[in-house]
């Protein structure tokens, strides 16, 4: 039995789950509005009208969870000098040549990039979404605001979708234990050493310090 470490506490797991579910809903209903080929999704989810009504509210929920993540994770997500070397070695990471990848802290540079993509994406989606939500109250002279908001909403959504695809793929298929970690919160020391050695070291030294006291 290897030693298990707490990677995500309960709050983090809750917030990530909420964000994930909200995003999924937004993605699916958004896709329904995006193209007629996916409109059936809205029908499955309770009809086009209900989807249109819930989408902005779930959007607010998603924005709130992203804000929560921002508050909790923004320090861990700061880009460090090590991240630059990590970025240069990204092709090794993609090819699973992990021994040629520099060690990562709690989050590697890819995760950090996703985080910031989602933070800025959510902000853009929120702002443009609110404009689209209130489109009926926009005076005729400012109709361009509504049009641009709609366009930017789509652009922002596409950007987050790109990140989302990679994120899910990485977490579910590429990194064994990743999904498990974000659901149950714990990882093995072995897992931590392989994927986040600097974080492991940090956790260990912290634990040592605590046990010395």
């Amino acid at each position: 039995m290897t030693h298990r470490l707490v990677r995500y506490d309960f709050g983090e797991r809750l917030m990530h789950t909420l964000a994930a579910l909200a995003y999924l809903y937004l993605l699916l209903t958004g896709l329904a509005f995006w193209t007629p080929a996916f409109y059936w999704i809205a029908v499955v989810l309770g009809g086009g009208y209900l989807s249109r009504v819930l989408h902005p509210w779930i959007g607010l929920l998603f924005a709130a969870t992203v804000l929560w993540m921002f508050v909790v994770w923004r320090r861990d997500m700061r880009v460090t000098p090590e991240d630059r070397t990590w970025r240069r070695a990204i092709r090794h990471y993609i090819r699973n040549e992990d021994d040629k990848v520099p060690p990562a802290w709690r989050f590697n540079f890819g995760q950090k990039q996703l985080f910031w993509l989602m933070v800025f994406g959510a902000a853009a989606l929120l702002l443009t979404g609110i404009v689209m939500w209130l489109v009926a109250s926009i005076p005729g002279e400012l109709s361009a605001v509504g049009q641009i908001a709609t366009l930017l909403h789509a652009v922002a959504a596409l950007a987050t979708i790109a990140g989302f695809i990679i994120h899910v793929y990485m977490g579910v298929a590429v990194v064994p234990g990743g999904l498990d970690a974000v659901i149950h919160g714990e990882v093995t020391e072995e897992w931590a050493r392989r994927h986040h050695p600097l974080w492991l070291a940090q956790v260990k030294s912290e634990n040592d310090a605590r046990s010395r006291e």
């Binding site: 793929y169 590429v174 990194v175």
Partner: peptide, 19 residues
């Protein structure tokens, strides 16, 4: 892009696979 993204990860999975 969406189709490409999905295809991309599929190809990655087949070529490179899990860590």
């Amino acid at each position: 892009a969406m189709v490409g993204g999905i295809l991309g990860v599929l190809v990655h999975y087949v070529r490179v696979g899990r860590k």
